[in-house]
Deep mutational scan, measured.
Amino acid sequence: EETVVIALYDYQTNDPQELALRRNEEYCLLDSSEIHWWRVQDRNGHEGYVPSSYLVEKS
């Protein structure tokens, strides 16, 4: 079962390993094994790492 997370803030990045976030957008959580950086996928299928503190699990 996939976990959906919501971005609390915008996040901009130039790092190809990371993914930009848009506030209030939903993302699919792929990997939360790292404490500070979670791997997520956006609705267009793009994947990357984002700061975990910018996300909240959708209830």
Rank of each mutant, 00 (worst) to 15 (best):
E1S: 04
E2H: 06
T3C: 04
T3P: 10
T3Q: 11
T3K: 15
V4P: 07
V5L: 10
V5N: 02
V5G: 02
I6Q: 06
I6G: 02
I6E: 06
A7D: 00
A7R: 00
Y9W: 08
D10T: 04
D10H: 04
D10R: 01
D10F: 01
Y11R: 12
Y11T: 04
T13Q: 09
T13C: 08
T13D: 07
D15Q: 15
Q17R: 15
Q17S: 11
Q17Y: 15
E18H: 11
E18V: 06
E18Q: 08
L19G: 01
L19T: 04
L21K: 00
L21Q: 01
R22L: 12
R23L: 06
R23E: 10
R23Q: 14
N24W: 05
N24S: 12
N24R: 06
E25F: 06
E25T: 10
E26V: 06
Y27H: 01
Y27Q: 00
C28S: 13
L30R: 07
D31M: 02
D31P: 02
D31W: 02
S33A: 11
I35T: 14
I35S: 13
I35A: 13
I35P: 14
H36Y: 10
H36A: 12
W37D: 03
W38D: 01
W38F: 07
W38M: 04
R39P: 00
V40M: 02
Q41Y: 06
Q41F: 04
Q41V: 09
Q41D: 06
D42H: 04
R43M: 14
R43K: 12
N44P: 03
N44H: 11
G45R: 06
G45L: 05
H46A: 12
H46E: 13
H46W: 05
E47K: 09
E47W: 04
G48F: 03
Y49A: 12
Y49W: 14
V50N: 00
V50F: 03
P51W: 02
P51E: 02
S53W: 07
S53T: 12
Y54L: 09
Y54D: 02
Y54Q: 03
L55D: 02
L55Y: 00
L55C: 08
E57L: 08
K58E: 05
K58F: 12
K58D: 05
S59K: 14
